[in-house]
Amino acid sequence: MRFQVFPDAASTTAVQVDWLLAFLSLVTLFFLGIIFVPMGVFLYRYRRGNPVDRTPLNISTWKIEVFWTTVPLVLTFVIFGWGAGLYVHMKTPPEDAQEIYVVGKQWMWRLQHPEGKREINALHVPVGRTVKLMITSEDVIHSFFIPVFRVKQDAVPGRYTMEWFKATKAGTYHLFCSEYCGTQHSGMIGWVTVMEPKDYQDWLNSGSPQETQIAAGERLFHQLGCSGCHAENSKVRAPSLVGLYGKPVPLEGGTIVTADERYLHDSIVMPAKQIVFGYENLMPSFEGQLNEEQLFQLVQYLKHLGREQPPEYRRQGEGAAQFIVPHEAP
């Protein structure tokens, strides 16, 4: 029987969360102490039949009340600040993160690496590289939980959520679905394998070569006829997509949104939800024609568009040539 009291900490975040938990435990012990030590003393000393002085103190109590209202209040502000700061850190992936696509489905996790490699209920990552998971679900709400990394994020149907981590210790760790998702919820588990970078590269190169996510997205982009309208020389006036990712987009009605993954995803399945200002609502919905994985490939391709191009290329005006994607394996 394996036996553990404390979980491993195998990511940069895990160490930070553990410090926070240690602090919280100290706070807990402190309060338990200042409540139960006096309580024990009172219970013993003032038990019935014990001859002690019981004359009531005639003091005003409000100063005491204010004191023990303020002290916990201030302490909670400290805890809040620490927790919130770390939370923002956990919600802010470093720029150089490698994106892995995760989709939950009753009752398994399917994952795809940018290089095209697919996994089910398993995740291989190298030590020391920041990995960002883009998570979604095909049916119900799941939750992608890796205890040793201290990260957890629900997979919500109809949208992308994100979690990131930087593994620090090679090894094999549990991966759980932690949001109840139906009959085989407890079977929706797997292993995270953290490998030394060289081993990881070997693992990546093993098996038959795969189409990268971006390449697959590009293929879909042409197959579905997206390029027909979204090229500048097209007869149909549609917004250009080059370099769109991460930029502010003005919409009909005056609001401005960021073209993030969610925006790109929704613009494909629900084009009318957010009409770009100055354009007509012409685009048909691709809902039902693509599965979540294909949608993600398209999104990855759109994110890629214009990102890898040299600066002078971007300044050359926007011709049909822009859809020629520089071929370099990401």
Binding site: V88, T92, G246, P248, T255, V257, T258
Partner: peptide, 18 residues
């Protein structure tokens, strides 16, 4: 849909609601 300000700041993207 907003991102934490820290995120926007570090990645050099503009704040989306201007």
């Amino acid at each position: 849909s907003a991102l934490p300000p820290d995120w926007l700041h570090r990645t050099g993207r503009t704040n989306h609601v201007d």
